[in-house]
Design a binder for these strands. Structure first.
Lengths: 116, 116
DNA sequence: TCTTAATATTCCTTTACACGTATATACGTT
DNA sequence: AACGTATATACGTGTAAAGGAATATTAAGA
């Protein structure tokens, strides 16, 4: 069984989970909305299901998948040890979150990113 | 540049971050406390530094590493879309978190984990 | 039963990554 | 300068995982 960290490292799987956070979806719907091949969707769903992150129910030929958020709590618990920094460095944090949404231009490798 | 998700998927790197959450550490201290080889520690620190998750300062021959929590906020932001489930399914969540700390006995593969 | 739709699985190939070993670099001490 | 300590990097190797194409399975409908 894979750890929840291994499961959510895959961008497609995070996208699937994000989609399911809104509502239950069939495989075909996921395929269409995320522009993935059908086998790819099924394979990712298999991983997600094995890790307990989703759950399926049958509706005729379709399988409707919904989220099972419990394993994500493990990530939340792990993160909590760093929340102390959130509160004490709010400014830098907000700057960083703003940065995230921007397409960063190319950066040469090997340089230390320490801004000081 | 790797995404923060790719960085924290590695258990050793999560362990390093956990250690640094407490206090600044030298490479040798990390090596000793986590029972890792020196090259392994250096390599993981390189990944962490490239991703902006740690930062180093020089102290004689030693390099002291400390945490830079900002990128972890990205994980927190992603997780937030699932927090709605936390509040509405607290019981199942607590059960799951209790489970996590238990060494789960072997489970045969291929079975659907849907408990219903 | 034959066919179509929806989903799952298998096989194959490619890529990425983690580790160990060995070596390089940097700093300090004598 | 020579040596020791601390850290970083290079190289080779094994492994695992993701994607595409093809195929298998399951259920519905005619």
């Amino acid at each position: 069984m894979q750890s929840v960290f291994e499961v959510i490292v895959e961008p497609s799987r995070r996208a699937i989970l994000g989609l399911l956070a809104t509502s239950e979806q069939s495989v075909g719907e996921i395929e269409t909305r995320l522009h993935m091949s059908q086998p790819a969707v099924s394979k990712h769903l298999r991983v997600l299901r094995d890790a307990g992150l989703v759950q399926s129910r049958v509706d005729a030929q379709r399988r409707l998948y919904r989220i099972r958020p419990e394993p994500l709590a493990e990530v939340d618990v792990w993160l909590s040890q760093f929340r102390q920094f959130w509160s004490t460095h709010l400014d830098a944090l907000e700057r960083h979150l703003d940065q995230m949404s921007i397409d960063v231009p190319h950066k040469s490798k090997g340089e230390n990113d320490d801004p000081k």
